[in-house]
Design a protein around this nucleic acid. Sequence first.
DNA 1: GCTGGCGTTGACGTGTGCGGCAAGGTTTAC
DNA 2: GTAAACCTTGCCGCACACGTCAACGCCAGC
Lengths: 135, 135
Amino acid sequence: MRIGELAERAGTTTRALRYYEQLGLLPARRAGNGYRAYDEGDLRLLREIRMLQDFGFGLEETRPFVECLRAGHPEGDSCPASLEVYRRKLAELDECIAKLQDVRQQVAGQFERAVRARDELAASEQPPVCELTKE
Amino acid sequence: MRIGELAERAGTTTRALRYYEQLGLLPARRAGNGYRAYDEGDLRLLREIRMLQDFGFGLEETRPFVECLRAGHPEGDSCPASLEVYRRKLAELDECIAKLQDVRQQVAGQFERAVRARDELAASEQPPVCELTKE
DNA sequence: GCTGGCGTTGACGTGTGCGGCAAGGTTTAC
DNA sequence: GTAAACCTTGCCGCACACGTCAACGCCAGC
């Protein structure tokens, strides 16, 4: 299989594949004409990378999974190094979520204060004249 | 006040201030010798920028707040444009938090599945011989 | 044999918020 | 008078995962 076909079957681009090879993440054999040659195993590796990327893993974080598969294990996460990455990622996610929730609270507080200030200003500048102003 | 003093009083760097000026976010008057000259008002603007940055606002998102203050309003969020930025940010935060929580769920699921698979494999390869193996 | 569609490498661009350095001018303290 | 500490502009670098050329080679169909 050549690079274009692999890219299409994995739902990515040739540019990404060349980049992965540059990182040593997904090295390719070469055909006689210099074209990159891939097989079904590479497709499996690539799908693993893509799935982890969708989870927000950086490319370096996918490396243990890829190497685990290349070592012949049935799943990318059959190795301790991969499990460790999972653990780190979960901790990271928890921290990030907590931080965002804290920020959300603070921003919501600022927003509500600002809205109240605006409403009070409007009320003092243009007090309702009488009941008749209500249409 | 010169750039170094302002930076120190706001807890930032001269480099950041020059960058803000480059963006037109915090323009500076100039002294006769070409040095940037700031006043207390600029310190106020800068503090506003820094606070919003701490909330994760991008510099462009702080612009309405800064312009609001420069227009003479008592607070950076006294203007409708600032309130709109708050609203957008809250929506963005909610979306981001929801996404992260979803990802966390999925990663946790993968992790637990992988751990179970590992334990089952270990159990089948090295079954507990008998009660005596427990120390 | 020629066009079109593959492939190759290499290099620069993207966005964000600065850090760091060079090469100079200014001011301040002693 | 001179050294230290400030200021100026300008430009390159970083992280990250590629996108987007450019200039070229290879191969299939007509």
